[in-house]
């Protein structure tokens, strides 16, 4: 496969990882987070610094996941009482703090960032990690735990009245989402081999949010659809004309506005296109794929 296409697939995989994490936070537990790229940045910096210090890639990738999760915990705890727009502003503030630190610390290389990170991310790694994370998250989301998270997003008071410690599950979602973003960051850094604070700003957070909303908030397949579209769209448009490519952020905005008007629940809709089709068994996702194949055969 040519480098160009494999690069697009790698970017898509990384974006799907990011969107899946945010989907758990925003789509399920209903916490509007505008700082998701920050967790990606934390994962990227942590793993890059560790690989450059000589640690094996997978160890430093894991460390990036853990540190990002830890930050998720740290930001999740104090902001728990905040809801909706208030939480969004708080996560925004968190992103600014981290960006300022990355810009000024000497260990992170300041605005110059980190260069010459070893090339470790390849197509296979990204595909396998994305698939495994998707599968685990899908299991989680269609389990009782996923339903509890969804219930919190729908009505926090009612879920507390049924005995749900909503803070606990909201933090759990934050930690898992942050960890996935950390992994995405690690993969990103070891593919492009150069990172700086500008890679992980508010714009990136919004881009991730776009993927989630576009695909369908609270749908386990939503981030995949949204991630694929948002990753491939600018590349596809690049071939049409460079002008279109330049205005891709504008295009995101336009897509979001149009989506909100014609299909506010996202392409797949918020409630699982496939989930309700077959509730039996644990491997229903594979079964529905198999079913589709069988149908195509006959």
């Amino acid at each position: 496969m040519s480098g160009y296409y494999s690069q697009i697939i790698i970017i898509t995989g990384i974006n799907i990882l990011l969107a899946m994490g945010l989907n758990l936070i925003t789509g399920y537990t209903g916490q509007l987070s505008l700082g998701h790229a920050t967790f990606m940045g934390i994962g990227a910096y942590t793993s890059s610094l560790l690989t450059k210090a000589g640690l094996p890639f997978y160890i430093s990738l894991l460390a990036g996941v853990l540190i990002a999760s830890l930050f998720g915990l740290a930001i999740g705890m104090p902001t728990l009482r905040l809801r909706g727009d208030y939480l969004a502003i708080a996560t925004l503030g968190f992103g600014e703090i981290v960006r300022t630190f990355l810009n000024n610390l000497s260990i992170t290389g300041g605005p110059n960032g980190i260069r010459a990170i070893p090339l470790k991310t390849d197509l296979t790694t990204v595909i396998i990690l994305t698939a495994v994370c998707f599968y685990l998250l899908y299991r989680l989301q269609s389990s009782r735990l996923g339903k509890v998270m969804r219930a919190i997003g729908q009505d926090e008071i009612a879920s507390e009245a049924t005995g749900v410690n909503s803070s606990y599950y909201k933090i759990m979602a934050f930690v898992i989402g942050a960890g996935l973003a950390g992994m995405a960051g690690g993969l990103y850094a070891h593919y492009f081999r150069y990172i700086n604070p500008a890679n992980f700003t508010f714009n990136k957070s919004i881009e991730i949010l776009c993927m989630v909303v576009l695909g369908g908030l609270g749908n386990p397949f939503g981030p995949v659809v949204g991630g694929v579209i948002i990753s491939i769209l600018p590349e596809a448009l690049r071939n049409i004309s460079p002008v279109v490519s330049q205005y891709r952020m504008v295009l995101y905005g336009v897509i979001l506005i149009v989506m909100m008007i014609i299909r506010p629940q996202g392409i797949l809709g918020g409630n699982g296109l496939f989930i309700n089709a077959n509730r039996k068994g644990n491997f229903k996702i594979f079964r529905s794929v198999k079913g589709a194949v069988k149908n195509a055969d006959s």
Partner: peptide, 20 residues
């Protein structure tokens, strides 16, 4: 205050949260 986007059985399952 039901979980309006969830099914009837999932709503009742939520009620069981304090037990399971």
């Amino acid at each position: 205050r039901l979980f309006s986007d969830m099914s009837v059985e999932d709503n009742i399952m939520m009620g069981l949260h304090s037990r399971i």
